[in-house]
């Protein structure tokens, strides 16, 4: 009975969706509606107008900078929420006994060696993606994810104590708000120099400043995002 209901639900959901999808313009045709409105202008004017050769960076950091500003606030808020949920009341835990602790299974030598071998390369890659987000694929969020993955894998290998010692608590607090903070700083600079929050320089001669701001925000998002993700991981692993 339950199974029949599930199948019925899936069919009821799938049929209208498939029907709608079949009516869409052909996949990959340049005449699709999302391609015919504002994208041509972004593609045509993006580099001169917004300061980055990578149009995706132009869109997220310049044309839709407000959106991304809210975005980095969202990841910071999620960290705050995770801390509020998990660090709130430590007492009253009723966990079943005999739970395996994190040291119960030692990390294999092969995994440990490979991680140690690769981690400098991962770090270089993350920094490259962060700094070159305006002229090549990449940007702040991506490099933040790579850096956070590096921190998490290092935590698994060397243990949490040693990994956390690399980033003292006081600095960590600052890094966690790095992304909203850089956005705020750049936004207020725009307010003072060009009259609007997050206003970028528009004239030909000041394009270097727009590019510099994009790089600064990229660094801020990368470092801040990595710090937030790593902190979430550390907070979740708090009681193991």
């Amino acid at each position: 009975m339950k199974r029949a209901l599930t199948v019925a639900l899936l069919v009821v959901v799938a049929i209208p969706l498939l029907y709608a999808v079949a009516q869409l313009p052909q996949h990959g045709s340049p005449m699709t509606p999302p391609y015919t409105h504002i994208s041509p202008r972004y593609l045509e004017k993006g580099p001169e107008e917004a300061g980055a050769e990578n149009i995706v960076t132009d869109v997220i950091l310049n044309y839709r900078g407000f959106d991304t500003n809210g975005e980095v606030t969202v990841i910071f808020t999620s960290l705050a929420a995770v801390c509020a949920v998990l660090l709130g009341s430590r007492k009253g835990d009723e966990r079943p006994a005999g739970e395996p602790s994190s040291s119960a299974v030692p990390v294999s030598d092969v995994v440990s060696f490979v991680v140690r071998l690769l981690s400098p390369l991962i770090a270089i890659f993350a920094v490259y993606v962060m700094l070159f987000g305006h002229i090549s694929p990449g940007g702040g969020f991506q490099s933040g994810a790579i850096l956070a993955a590096l921190v998490i894998v290092t935590t698994v290998i060397v243990g949490r104590k040693q990994a956390e010692a690399l980033v003292p608590v006081r600095i960590r607090r600052l890094l966690q708000v790095a992304a909203p903070l850089t956005f705020f700083v750049v936004g207020v600079s725009g307010l003072f120099l060009f009259g609007d929050y997050l206003a970028y320089p528009k004239t030909e001669g000041q394009m270097w400043l727009a590019t510099a701001w994009l790089i600064v925000i990229g660094i801020g998002i990368g470092v801040g995002g990595a710090a937030v993700l790593a902190s979430i991981f550390w907070t979740m692993g708090d009681d193991s």
Binding site: P34, Y35, I38, S39, Y42, L43, G46, I55, V56, D58, V59, I60, R64, D67, T68, E71, V74, I75, T77, S78, L79, A81, V82, V85, G139, F141, G225, L229, I232, M236
Partner: peptide, 21 residues
């Protein structure tokens, strides 16, 4: 088209946040 890619980049970040919470 750069716009869907930019929008989904934002969407992924929200997805990560909700997953963490």
């Amino acid at each position: 088209n750069p716009i869907p890619q930019a929008l989904i980049l934002t969407g992924i970040v929200v997805a990560v946040s909700t997953t963490a919470l």
